[in-house]
Amino acid sequence: MPLPATSERTSTIDCSDMPVRAINREIRAALAGNSTKIMLLHPGARHNLGVALPEGTELTIDGPAGYYVAGLNDGATVHVHGGVGWGAAESMRDGVVTIDGDAGNAVAAAIRDGVVVVRGDASTRAGIAMKGGVLIVGGSVGPMAGFMMQKGIIIICGDAADGVADSMYAGTVYVAGKLGELGADAVVEEFTGGDRDLVYSHLERWKIPAPAAGFRKLVAGRKLWNFQKADRHLWKSAL
């Protein structure tokens, strides 16, 4: 995607020789100076860029970011023009985080609301412990996507490796590509017209090419909600 044009209200920070603490301080200073658009150049996969940013902030990171980029997001819009490390957007309260490249382990971990878009592939445990919000992966995801998910939706346009939708309390995982071994208590449910409207409106909204194959819908079988002796075999693999 082309970088947005630099306007007068955009503050540009060249991260080349800066420690993370100084970069985040400059971001805060720019916000205090009434810039709402901030551009980071040469991020070099540094960790903890743009954490806990307030609503109204528009941060563009022109290159790869490390761990926890846009972590604890408080409503900001963050665009990463590259890949990201572990825990991108973790525990986001609200906001939008778009990642042009690939995402490391635990992207969108425990987010409560907002949208995370990964245009490339996501590694292990994508959307682990999600408590709401939407995670969209244009490519494939590694093992254990949606592990212990509680609410929200995950849309996977590529393949999902083993353990997808493992031990979810609730929430929905949509997968278009190949399904690995399903996680404990994951069940395939009918993909309805309502699901179709929801999934494809997200793909259109975030300009993700619709996959050739149709989507499967995975939800919690709810057998792990409360212990039942009759399900002890299921629990043996879950506990």
């Binding site: 993370v20 603490r21 985040n24 960790h47 903890n48 954490v51 806990a52 490390g66 761990y67 926890y68 972590g71 604890l72 825990g87």
Partner: peptide, 9 residues
């Protein structure tokens, strides 16, 4: 790195 994130936040 996690501790640094919490400090930055």
């Amino acid at each position: 790195i996690k501790i640094e994130e919490l400090r930055e936040a």
